[in-house]
Design a protein around this nucleic acid. Structure first.
Lengths: 166, 166
DNA sequence: CATAGTCAGTTCAATCATTCAACTGTCAGG
DNA sequence: CCTGACAGTTGAATGATTGAACTGACTATG
């Protein structure tokens, strides 16, 4: 990767995007979550080229977002499952899917619905504040530079902006 | 774009990823949300190349995720703001940021925190079921092919899988 | 035993996207 | 007149992605 590395920028969004910030990775994770655990199943379902899938799976495995397990010796065959980190990504993918539905639904609507088995209902995901439980949105949310954070290349511009606003 | 088009696959996640499924777009949206409304501010903050930013902004504008507004004639100058669709993406970006923090926090922790001004607290985003209000996770969530949906190229494999499970 | 098929990849050429740096054009202020 | 801000555009070099063919270890069928 020749892309600008964000390793020293101490920005969590960029960190997340280094792992799942491309076209295929979220789709792969969704497929694994939905029950497609084998290489060829994912290839067939997504139409991704095999070399790219191999690379993505290797990358996701080294970052422990998915786990690679032997399900057969003779011949050696692997299957893929979500780890804890991968599973915590699922609600986000669900939310993204809902957003895609809402703002660019294809004719006929979504192909997949999500069911919350805990309560038995089909549901829409909503993202709430852990403190008060209310939905968060752009109007009631403010980003702020963390007090302790050293200002890297990127933090400066935002910090300056926020200083002006004060 | 020579990428496999998902236009006919009636999948909402793929739809969403066509719009924000790349490296820079989420970062651009975050910057616009955080108060960086001008071209050069974003360039400086992200280190993105100018031609790419121009293309991304044009694309986001045509899909009405951001709006391009004239803030000065003579010379003509534009600024960028989130539309309703863009603002509904913000909670998802916040959730992604939190995930990045949790699973691959850079040394020193996050550079940015989010504050919910409605209740005044710093918060962690949590994604809950719209029906019962409980947090959703991979264990209690099931994806299902929508009854009415025509099976496109991709739906088949998952549908087959789910049929086996029944 | 031979043949076909499954599975999880690897290899490679062609094509596409991204980076980096330099450039354009309009205007304001000194 | 000169400098600088601003919002881009242009183009060569580099990198990533696609698509198709191939490998290698096995299993199931006739």
């Amino acid at each position: 990767m020749q892309r600008t590395s964000f390793k020293n920028m101490r920005r969590s969004l960029a960190q997340a995007l280094e792992l799942i910030g491309d076209w295929w990775t979220p789709l792969i994770l969704r497929d694994v979550f939905l029950g497609l655990h084998r290489f060829d199943e994912v290839v067939e379902n997504l139409g991704i080229s095999r070399n790219l899938l191999a690379r993505r799976l290797a990358m996701l495995a080294t970052h422990k977002i998915i786990a690679r397990k032997v399900y057969s010796r003779r011949p050696v065959r692997y299957e893929y499952r979500l780890t804890a980190a991968g599973e915590e990504l699922v609600p986000i993918l669900v939310a993204l899917t809902a957003w895609g539905d809402r703002w660019s639904a294809p004719p006929g609507g979504a192909a997949i619905e999500f069911v919350h088995t805990a309560c038995g209902h089909r549901f829409a995901p909503s993202i709430v504040c852990s403190q008060c439980g209310e939905e968060i949105d752009a109007a009631t949310t403010v980003g702020a530079a963390r007090p302790g954070a050293k200002s890297g290349p990127g933090v400066t511009v935002i910090a300056r902006k926020l200083a002006q606003a004060t």
